[in-house]
Design a protein around this nucleic acid. Structure first.
Lengths: 383, 383
DNA sequence: CAATTTGTGGCAACCGGTTGACAAGGCGTC
DNA sequence: GACGCCTTGTCAACCGGTTGCCACAAATTG
C-alpha cells in the first residue's frame, strides 16, 4: 500500500481508473447524478463488456450493495419501494448477474451437464433438444459432453463436469451402476434409458409399444418372431427382449433371440443371414439402425419387405421414414425423456433437501407406441 | 466480529469448523502430518465435494498460496524444486481448479458457446461433435444453445452466452451481419456456413463438389438441370445456386432455379410439381432433406429415380443413404467445420492480441466432394 | 569481496455477489 | 409513553484463485 494501490492490476482489464467500489456510507444519496456524468467513461475497454455490477446499482439507487443482492435474489426481503428503486436502476444499467461471482460463494452454478454416448447417434438428438429446451426455459445452461461409447471416457467426463454443474444427466450411460451411484451421492444425477437402484431415472416403458407391435404381427398372420438383441451390457436391450417374449407368449407366437455384433446399420446387415436361417417371418430389432441395415441387406438379396418378412425397429429415429418401405417402429418419446430428466433435476434442486430424504428416488416412466409404417404387414403365402 | 467470526455462515456449506485458510507465516512447515490427522474430518458434508483448494496445497507443500497458483498456471515462474513439491501435493489431494474462482478475477472461462438453428437438424450433428471434440481436447467446455430458427431467439441466446464464454461459434446464423459483427467486437466469434465481413468464418467451398456433380450429370446424358433453392436469406443457398449456374455453363447445360417453401422433407414434396413442370431431367436441391422429400413424392407419382430423373442433394446428412435408391449428394465436411471453428477460436484466444490486429480475420475454406450413390445416373430414353 | 543482477516466494488487494449478525426505525399494544 | 416485535437496511467476512509489487537470497560480475 504505497499509495498506488488503487491502480488496476488485472492484465485483462483496462488500467483506466480506480474501481468505483462501494466505500461504506453513501455520503450524498440524494445526488447520484453528480458523478453519474463521469461514470460512463470507465466502461468499455478491450473486452468491452458493459456489465454493471451490484455496486453500480447500489450507487444509482442509493443503497447498500447487499440490499441490491437481496432485492434481486430474495423476493420479499426488501420493501416494495426499495425493490422498485433497485429494479429500475438495474434495468437502466442493463444489469446481468455474473454467474461466476454467484457460483463462487453459493456453489450454485445454474448449469446442467448432459453426457451422451455418441453425439452423432440420432437417438440422442431429441434427448439433447428436450433437455436443452427445458433447461433454458428455467434459466439453466446446458453443457454437453460425449463419452465416445467408452465407460472410462464417460466417467472422466462426468467427474470433470461435477465441479461445474448443479446436476448431471446421463443418457444411456455405459459406466456401471456403482459409479453412477457414487456420482449421485455428490450431486443430483438423473439417468435416461436405464434403471439404476437409488438413482432417479427416466425410462420408456416398452410394454405398450411392444404388445401393439406383436399384436399387429399376429393379426397379419405371423407365427414366429425373431428379436435381434443389442449390446450385451445394454439394460434397455434386455428389457426389450423381455417385452417381446411376454407379448409373444400372450399372442401365442414363437419368439427367438438373435445376437448382433454392434447396434448399427452395419450390424443389421451382418445379422441378415441369421434372420433368414431362423425361419422367422417377422423381426424386431433392438434399434432402428439395426432394422435399417437388416432391411437393406434382405432387399439386396431379393427378399420383399413386408411381403416375405416384416421388420420392426425401436426408437423412431430421424430417417426411419426415409427407407422404402418406411420403417415400422416402436417409438420412444426421446424428447420427453430429455425434458423429463431436466425437469426431474430441477425438482431435485429446488425441493427441500430434508423432505423426501428417505423415500426412494422418483423414476419417470414414459409411454411407447407403435408407429405403423410400410415395413411390417400381412405375410404373403410363398410362391 | 464478536468472536464467532470464524464460523461458517454459508448456508450451503457445513458449519463444521473454521476454514483452514492460509494464515500468514507457516509456523511448522516441517510437520504437516501433525494436523493432517484431523484434517479429513472437515471434508465431505451434504454436498460432499472433496475439492481441495490451493490453500490446502500450500499447507501441505509449506508454501504460500500464491506460489501454488503460479506453479500451476505460470510455468517457469517458480523453481523446479518448488514446482515438484506443489505438483505432488496437488496430486495427493486430488486437486482440481475451481473454474469459477479462476473466472472471476481473470474473465477467462475456458468455455465456448455454440449456437445452432435447430438441434434436431442432422446438418448440425457433425458440427456439434466436431466442435465438442476439439474443445474438449484443449480443456475447453462446450455449452450449447438452440435458436429455434429465429433470429431474435438467436440474438438473445448469444447475448446471454457472451457473459459466460470466452468465444462463440455461430453455425448457420440467422441474425444479420451487423449483429454478428457487434458480438464479434465483444469477444471472439467464428461463423460457420456463412461469410461475414470482418469476422472469421468457416465455409465449405462448394465449387469442387458441384462441378463434379454437374460433370457427372452431363456425362450421363442430361441437358437440363434444375436447382431447388433454400430460404431466401440463406447465404449458402445463394452460393450453391451460383455454383450450379457456373458449372452448368461450363458443361453447356441449361440451369433453372426453382423455389422451395421450406428446406425440409415436406418442402421437397411440395416442390415436386414444379420440378416435373420444369422439364429438367436432373435436380440439385439446396439440401438433402429437400432431395429426400422430392424423391419420395416423385416415386409416389410413379417416376423412376434415376432412370427418369436424377436427384442430387447437399450435405450428406445422416440417413441420406437410407433411401431407395440411396441419395447422391455433395458432401460438406461438417465435422471439420465444427472442429475448424473451434480451432480458429482457440487460435484467436491464445494468440497475441497485438499481432495481426490489422490483418483481416482468417477464413477457413473446406473442400466439398461428390458422393455418388444411386439417385443419380444415366438418363433412360422415354418409353 | 563488494555491488549488482537475476531468480524466487510472500503479501495483500481484488474479481462480484452472498449472507449471518446486528442495529435502526416503524408500528401496535398495554 | 414505554415496551417489544417486526421490517428493512448495513456491515463485513467470505467463496478460491490471480497478480502487481516488493523483499530477500542466490548468482553473477567487476
Amino acid at each position: 500500500m504505497k499509495g498506488a494501490e488503487c491502480e488496476r492490476w488485472f492484465g485483462n482489464r483496462p488500467a483506466v481508473c480506480c474501481r468505483a467500489h462501494y466505500d461504506g456510507a453513501v455520503t450524498e444519496p440524494k445526488t447520484p447524478d453528480a458523478d453519474a456524468t463521469k461514470a460512463p467513461a470507465k466502461k468499455h475497454a478491450r473486452d468491452g463488456r458493459p456489465n454493471a455490477t451490484i455496486y453500480d446499482i447500489a450507487k444509482v439507487a442509493g443503497v447498500n450493495p447487499s440490499t441490491v443482492s437481496r432485492a434481486l435474489s430474495k423476493p420479499g426481503r426488501v420493501s416494495a419501494k426499495t425493490q422498485k428503486l433497485i429494479e429500475d436502476a438495474a434495468a437502466e444499467l442493463n444489469y446481468q448477474v455474473n454467474p461466476f461471482a454467484r457460483a463462487l460463494p453459493t456453489g450454485r452454478t445454474s448449469t446442467f451437464g448432459l453426457i451422451v454416448a455418441d453425439i452423432t447417434n440420432p437417438t440422442f438428438f431429441d434427448i439433447i433438444r428436450g433437455a436443452e429446451t427445458t433447461a433454458t426455459a428455467r434459466d439453466y445452461t446446458l453443457v454437453l459432453a460425449e463419452s465416445a461409447e467408452s465407460a472410462a471416457t464417460e466417467l472422466t467426463a462426468a467427474r470433470r463436469m461435477m465441479a461445474t454443474v448443479d446436476g448431471l444427466i446421463l443418457a444411456s450411460p455405459r459406466m456401471d451402476d456403482d459409479n453412477i451411484r457414487a456420482l449421485a451421492r455428490d450431486k443430483p444425477v438423473v439417468v435416461i434409458n436405464r434403471e439404476v437402484d437409488g438413482v432417479p431415472c427416466v425410462v420408456p416403458d416398452v410394454n405398450k409399444g411392444i404388445s401393439e407391435a406383436v399384436r399387429s404381427l399376429a393379426a397379419n398372420g405371423h407365427h414366429k418372431v425373431a428379436f435381434v438383441a443389442g449390446p450385451p451390457q445394454s439394460w434397455m436391450s434386455a428389457r426389450r427382449w423381455e417385452g417381446v417374449q411376454a407379448a409373444c407368449e400372450w399372442s401365442r407366437l414363437d419368439a427367438v433371440r438373435l445376437e448382433s455384433s454392434k447396434p448399427t446399420v452395419d450390424g443389421g446387415r451382418q445379422v441378415a443371414r441369421d434372420v433368414r436361417a431362423s425361419g422367422a417371418t417377422a423381426v424386431l430389432t433392438y434399434n432402428d439402425l439395426l432394422a435399417i441395415g437388416l432391411m437393406q441387406e434382405l432387399q439386396a438379396a431379393g427378399v420383399v419387405v413386408p411381403d416375405q418378412i416384416s421388420i420392426v425397429g425401436f426408437d423412431d429415429i430421424f430417417g426411419a421414414d426415409f427407407t422404402t418401405p418406411p420403417l415400422t417402429t416402436v417409438r420412444s418419446p426421446l424428447g420427453e425423456c430429455g425434458s423429463g430428466a431436466a425437469a426431474l433435476l430441477l425438482d431435485l434442486l429446488h425441493s427441500d433437501p430434508q423432505r423426501g430424504a428417505g423415500e426412494p428416488p422418483a423414476t419417470l416412466r414414459v409411454e411407447t407406441e407403435l408407429v405403423l409404417r410400410g415395413s411390417s404387414g400381412r405375410l404373403l403365402p410363398p410362391g
